[in-house]
Every structure is written in structure tokens, then in C-alpha cells.
């Protein structure tokens, strides 16, 4: 790991000084774009561009997928592949002063980490670019599991199914047996009147007097 780190440092040093020396040798970076394996889509190499060092150099891809970036000075160069429909991994190519090439994966967070890739470059798209979100589609399961529907369906069951159960004489009997204990709920109006009309006892009494319950003959 340490050795690798030092070598990268050397490369950085080399690239740092290249700007000053006026006339130096230039090299050619070669590579090939491979077609995506998973599909047999027409692969339009016309739309693929090789972008070097943030468009300081641009190269185009020939019909067979090969490309060459000429007149590259010694140093470390970032190769990005601009394609409207596929996305590629960027690659760094280091050219040493002796004209040796080394290609490696780009690791922005830990630039000292070195994962070499073969040179001349063989670049394969990582996949088709998906720029769009999928539209939400209407599915029956979505409807069933949605909480609103649940909230509507359950009371419906209670309303429709429970009275049916009640009509069954056995269950009815059962229900009567397990009747809820009755709680004496205080009547609100009664409370109010008792509160405000403390001395008007007559009124209270008349109010308290149970009203005759009218029951219709069945």
C-alpha cells in the first residue's frame, strides 16, 4: 500500500512539473469502447465522445469502437466517456516521463488507492442511463392495502355483516347472555339543571319525575 502511495505521489510530481517544461514529448492514449453485453441495441458510436481532462481534449470514437487521444503530455489524465444513452466509469491514465502507460480506476475520496485496469483501455458501459422516474401505475393491490380503503371496508363489514349475525336466533341468545354491564351514565341536562336551579326544587322534581314511556304495541 505504501509503495503504491509513493508511486502515485511520483506521478503527481511529474504532472505538476509538466506545465513548465516548454517542449516535451507527447503521447497517444488508445482505447476501445465495447458494446453493452446485456442487450443488442444499436450502439451508435457517433454519439459517444471521449472527454479528456474536462473537455480540454475531445476525441471521437470510430465505428469499430476504437479511439485515440493524441498529443497528450506526460502526466495524469482523466478520461470520461460522454454518451447520451449509456454511462461509463471514468478512468485515469498516467503517462510516465519514459512513456509508460498505466490506467487505473478513479477514486476521488482516496486518490492513493490504486486499482489498475488493463491498458490499452477497454471500456464497457456500466448500464443504460435511466434519467426518468417511473410513473406510478394503478394496481389493484395498492387499492386494497391503502389505509383509506381499509377504513372504509371494515365499518362496511360491521354494518352489513353484523346485523345478519344478529338475526340468527342462536347468536342472538348468545349476545343477550353476554350483555355488557350497564353503567349508569349521568344525564348531562340533569346535571346542568341541578347545578343552576339549586333552590327551585319544584322544578327539579317535575324534571326528575319520570316521563311515561310511550310504547307502541307490537
Amino acid at each position: 500500500m505504501k509503495v503504491l502511495g509513493i508511486s502515485v505521489f511520483l506521478f503527481a510530481l511529474v504532472s505538476g512539473t509538466e506545465a513548465n517544461s516548454a517542449s516535451e514529448e507527447t503521447f497517444q492514449i488508445d482505447g476501445k469502447i465495447l458494446p453493452p453485453s446485456d442487450s443488442f441495441l444499436p450502439y451508435d458510436t457517433e454519439s459517444v465522445e471521449i472527454v479528456v481532462n474536462g473537455r480540454k481534449r475531445v476525441s471521437f470514437v470510430q465505428s469499430d469502437g476504437t479511439f485515440a487521444v493524441t498529443s497528450m503530455p506526460v502526466g495524469s489524465h482523466l478520461i470520461e466517456i460522454a454518451s447520451p444513452n449509456y454511462f461509463f466509469e471514468p478512468i485515469k491514465v498516467d503517462i510516465s516521463a519514459k512513456g509508460k502507460f498505466r490506467a487505473r480506476k478513479v477514486n476521488l475520496v482516496q486518490p492513493s488507492q490504486l486499482i489498475q485496469v488493463p491498458y490499452p483501455l477497454k471500456l464497457k458501459p456500466l448500464g443504460a442511463s435511466r434519467y426518468f422516474q417511473a410513473r406510478e401505475q394503478w394496481r389493484i393491490t395498492d387499492l386494497i392495502y391503502s389505509p383509506m380503503i381499509m377504513m372504509m371496508v371494515l365499518p362496511l363489514i360491521f354494518i352489513v355483516v353484523l346485523p345478519k349475525l344478529m338475526s340468527d336466533p342462536d347468536t342472538r341468545k348468545e349476545m343477550e347472555q353476554m350483555q355488557m354491564p350497564k353503567y349508569e351514565m349521568p344525564d348531562l341536562s340533569e346535571m346542568m339543571t341541578s347545578l343552576f336551579a339549586g333552590d327551585a326544587k319544584k322544578a327539579k322534581q317535575s324534571a326528575v319525575k319520570p316521563a311515561p314511556v310511550v310504547r307502541r304495541k307490537q
Binding site: E46, F60, V61, Q62, S63, A68
Partner: peptide, 12 residues
């Protein structure tokens, strides 16, 4: 017709 690159040579 298509604008595809057929060849590229260094004539510098």
C-alpha cells in the same frame, strides 16, 4: 451521411 468517424490520422 451519418457523421461517423471512419479514420483518424496524425498529420502534424
Amino acid at each position: 451521411i451519418s457523421g461517423a468517424l471512419h479514420w483518424q490520422i496524425d498529420v502534424s
